[in-house]
């Protein structure tokens, strides 16, 4: 379960070596915006070596590669893919054509390296075209593990101002959630960019969760705990979910058809939701959360 995806600059050893302690479910090792053109070569070698030291992974490791209209992305793939990152995050993904170019190159590198499994992709959608083609991108191939929204570049493309309230990206958010869910993949919200506004962050994350996002990108390690908390079930929710599952078990044992708890009918969607909550809790908090069913 991925609630938080935290960007780390690809050429800063001090950040990389401590990355796994920051509490994010996934790290995005950034070869793009966080690395100056003069350091693209050193950054990708550093990230490759870092991946080599992370054979046993607690954290999902994603590498953000440079855009397909730059001179860097092929070298990025050539050096990074053989180290089996958990996913690659391509930027400004606009549709099928771009994914054709990208995946053709990836397949070539993977074949050369003798990799058995295609490397998953988490396309970053940050253009108007990308938003409009969301379902095409989300359902492109089995490589697609989810969609991620990049609100900053998108608003530039939309010729509007990015605001904290985010009215301007409401359409993009709902369209991405709908497309991703239709394709059966995860969907991650745009980062909240005010590093010091913790209240604003919590509100923004809660809104994203309410819309159906699976989690959220974060640009500051200080945002990780708050976003994790928003996208985790609360103790009360876990407790209630367990109660529901226990009720269902008892009812089955007693051969009862209709089950109610606290005066409320428990139907199939409620049970499914309860199972999901208990499973999420197990993934977040570890094995001891496993129920006896």
């Amino acid at each position: 379960m991925i609630r938080t995806l935290s960007f780390l600059p690809g050429n800063t050893p001090n950040m990389l070596i401590n990355g796994e302690t920051l509490g994010a479910d996934a790290l995005i090792l950034d070869l793009e915006d966080a690395v100056s053109p003069a350091e693209k070569d050193t950054a990708r070698i550093l990230v490759r070596n870092y991946l080599r030291t992370q054979r046993i992974r607690k954290t999902f490791l994603i590498v953000r590669i440079n855009a397909t209209d730059t001179a860097y992305w092929r070298d990025d793939l050539a050096i990074i893919l053989p180290e089996k990152p958990d996913a690659v995050l391509p930027t400004k993904v606009s549709g099928r054509q771009m994914l054709d170019t990208l995946t053709a190159e990836m397949s070539r590198v993977e074949q050369d390296a003798g990799l058995e499994r295609p490397t998953p992709l988490l396309p970053l959608i940050e253009t108007a075209m990308g938003v409009e083609n969301a379902i095409e991108i989300a359902s492109y191939s089995d490589r697609i593990m989810g969609l991620a929204l990049g609100g900053e570049d998108l608003t530039a493309d939309l010729h509007c101002k990015r605001t904290k309230e985010g009215q301007e990206i409401f359409y993009a958010r709902t369209r991405l959630v709908c497309a991703a869910r239709a394709a059966g993949v995860n969907v991650f919200d745009t980062p909240f960019t005010d590093v010091d506004d913790m209240e604003g962050l919590e509100k923004d994350a809660q809104f994203a969760k309410a819309l159906g996002f699976s989690g959220k990108l974060v640009i500051s390690p200080r945002h990780i705990d708050t976003v994790n908390a928003v996208f985790s079930p609360t103790e009360e929710e876990i407790e209630y979910a367990r109660l529901i599952l226990a009720c269902i078990r008892d009812a089955k044992a007693q051969g009862k058809g209709v089950v109610s708890l606290r005066g409320k009918m428990i139907d199939a969607p409620i049970v499914a939701r309860a199972r999901q909550v208990v499973e999420d809790a197990r993934q977040i908090f570890g094995e001891e959360e496993d129920t006896d069913e």
Partner: peptide, 23 residues
């Protein structure tokens, strides 16, 4: 620096010492 960082920096420096486009 950890070993993986030292190795990365040595490799990058050597590649940069290859002359024009010498990766």
């Amino acid at each position: 620096a950890l070993n993986c960082v030292i190795a990365a920096r040595v490799e990058a420096a050597v590649l940069r010492a290859q002359g024009e486009g010498g990766q």
